[in-house]
Write a protein that binds this DNA or RNA. Structure first.
Lengths: 350, 350
DNA sequence: ATGAAAGCGCTAACAC
DNA sequence: GTGTTAGCGCTTTCAT
């Protein structure tokens, strides 16, 4: 592949001149228009392309970001990645995706390779808190900025933490249900109580309920890392209580689907007998029966923000590690569909 | 960050010696065990990490693969990526994900950047045929191997093409339905007729039907790039025909969900009145109501195979471009769930 | 067994 | 305006 040297040789000028022209530095250091255009056209003819590798080696700046994840194929991770790529591309950066398997002790190999590649900055999703800590400790000495995205139990001083604004999301959800006359609202999370995501949802839910002076009934609030069948079972259990909630907020989109199924299994009509509202992905609910309303989390925006903030801090090459982790919460969006309705007459008393 | 030179200086040996030891080339060119261990331990103490950038610049080999996609956040793309990353990691390679927006003329910028980064090989999904052609033409002069994954209308001579084995997948699907007594089977694809995926599914479907001497009823076979509502409408239309199919194979998982919804909307019970079988993603059907049987496509394996084949061809640095595109078809898996059942008595006549 | 020297392709400081 | 020189951090060939 043709190099800067080849062009210089062909034209009888120095490599420096070629480099300057091709990098558009010619305005600073003045190159004659004649030489300039000769170089440009020759480069074109010869099919020259910078060797980004050599450039990176020379400048020590790879213009590559690393994205660490345990589950690149799950919806949220993929959305975050997409948002991140778009923003990175816009700023002339690449994204390398690394998969981590063992996230508690944090895959040493992956970390090693991040450092070897002289990655400019890193962001990660779905790591355990201890994983993030390990990451942080490894990165700090090398001043590699770090951002943690989505529900990760980020320890103090671990850089940026970007997540959904659960509070406004839950507020919107409860507001909406309240406006439809619902007073008995349950929360089935589909996430383990251990996870930050579950705690955040629960907390935001309790807060939103309090704002409306509604009682949080413990039996109607359940957490757990459920598969389809477990979700079904829990939902049936909750919907069979008396009194039962008239509306259920599901902690994830898949959980929502299973709750709808459970309701139907009990002979309840959605939304006539019970309203169901999902939380998470925007799209999937559109295919549910009935189409499921959701509080959509801003995954793409989260990836985008992660990159934007990391790149802002790149030039100074210095993370404010000592500061407590800075949280950025991005707004959710309530998407109404056919799974919520005015509470039925027989169910109006709290 | 500490370099090979630092270590050499500290130890009073040459950079060469350090390089040899750290690369385990010491067996070829014999280095004394003493020196060897001194170097290793010093490297450890000083926290040395190869500068992969410099190495790549020097060897001209970046050990990075590029993954081009128009929709990194869609299920199949993400699955393929995951499989690819796993295989790449296993072989000491990285994967850079590039998003392409304009795929007909192929995002020139992205291509430019692939070449600049001296990517070792590329694989892509969701490109148009002309996009692949552009890619191929740009890559050939530089001997960059290319693999096209999944439903892409790959022109001749465009390297490897890796896709699902639609024939055995459809055979399994039709076999299964046939065994349940179904004779009137429809195919609602949810993919535009223009797309390779639709043509492949249709062809495989017709073949499978013929194997069982079943008639393909044109009215029951529909293609189109449908959203939820359009799918619903088409499904209702087909299910309202008389005679109507007793079983429907949906071309994608989401389409399957909407078909179930449409059936229910018409007062039909699934699977009692009509059986429904999805095609595509393995997981999502598990959350459907009823849980939906699917022919699962081997997305992760496809990514894995793409990488494996590309890496095989890396050393010789030469693609057999002149050969017709070599197709590799990977087996699907029939996952049975509750959406299919023996055909009802009233529906037994073809 | 070790080192010197040249090379990869690029950038950057400074001289002419 | 352009060229010289040195440097990035590594690899590789060839002396010693």
């Amino acid at each position: 592949m043709v190099s800067i040297t080849d062009i210089a040789a062909r034209l009888g000028v120095s490599r420096t001149t070629v480099s300057l022209v091709l990098n558009n530095r010619s305005d600073q250091l003045r190159i004659s228009d004649a030489t300039r255009s000769r170089i440009l056209s020759t480069a074109g003819e010869m099919g020259y392309r910078v060797n980004a590798l050599a450039r990176a080696a020379s400048t020590g700046n790879s213009r590559v970001l690393g994205f660490l994840t345990t589950a690149p194929d799950e919806g949220p991770s993929a959305r975050i990645l997409t948002g991140a790529i778009d923003e990175a591309t816009r700023q002339g950066f690449f994204v390398k995706v690394l998969r981590i398997h063992n996230d508690s002790a944090l895959d040493d190999d992956a970390l090693e390779r991040c450092l070897e590649m002289r990655l400019g900055a890193l962001f990660c999703v779905y790591l355990s808190g201890s994983g993030v800590q390990v990451l942080r400790d490894a990165l700090e000495p090398h001043s590699v900025p770090l951002a943690v995205v989505d529900d990760v139990d980020t320890p103090q001083n671990c850089g940026l933490h970007i997540l959904s604004d659960y509070e406004s999301g839950m507020d919107a959800a409860v507001d909406h249900l309240f406006a439809l006359g619902h007073r008995r609202i349950g929360l089935l999370m589909g996430l383990s109580e251990q996870e930050l995501g579950a705690r955040q949802r629960r907390h935001a839910f309790e807060r939103a309920m309090a704002l409306h002076q509604l009682t949080v009934v413990p039996d109607w609030v359940r957490a757990g890392d459920w598969g389809p069948n477990e979700t079904d079972a829990v939902a049936r259990e909750v919907l069979s209580l008396s009194p039962a909630p008239t509306a259920i907020i599901a902690g994830t989109d898949f959980t929502g689907l299973a709750v709808i199924r459970a309701a139907r299994g009990l002979g309840l009509r959605v939304p006539d007998d019970v309203s169901i509202l999902g939380f998470g992905d925007a799209r999937i609910g559109d295919w549910a029966d009935p189409p499921m309303a959701v509080v959509a989390q801003p995954f793409a925006a989260m990836g985008q923000m992660a990159v934007r903030h990391l790149l802002e801090r790149l030039p100074q090459k210095e993370m404010p590690w000592s500061d407590p982790a800075r949280e950025i919460r991005l707004p959710t969006e309530l998407i109404l569909r056919a799974s919520t309705a005015r509470v039925s007459q027989t169910n109006t008393q709290p």
